[in-house]
Amino acid sequence: MSYFTEIYHGVKTLLTGMRVTGRYFITSGKSAITQQYPDNRASLKMFDRFRGEVVMLHDENNEHSCTGCQKCELACPNGSIEIIWDRGVDPETGKKKKFIDKHIYHLGMCTQCGLCVQACPSNAIVWAQKFRKTRSTTEPS
């Protein structure tokens, strides 16, 4: 290829690429494809299945449906869930029964794999969509 042909081809391919970017420069306008995250915090809605953190649901009487079966604790690969339980007497039947004292969830060890929520037989723990774990000092808690 001669010297001038090579220059011609080079300039042509560069202009072809510039046409792509130039078209976006003119046509895209203000419709940015990125999310302006901290500004849209109020309107941002995550998908229903998004795995943010594990929470235990409580009803209006502040009661949960956890039975303390420890299946989530066994299913967890990293030991993020710790269940402290005790034996008590069931007030209805008068038999001995396992009662849950505390259900501790260590967010720092969790890898959001979802095995504990799958393992729960009574749907006591679910995924919350909260992904922001920090707070600015100027914000109310």
Partner: peptide, 21 residues
């Protein structure tokens, strides 16, 4: 991926015997 599996990168959607959801 986020809508179906629940995560964008580390989706962990397969389980032995099928899919999680």
């Amino acid at each position: 991926f986020e809508e179906t599996c629940g995560a964008r990168l580390t989706m962990n959607y397969n389980v032995p015997g099928g899919l999680m959801h």
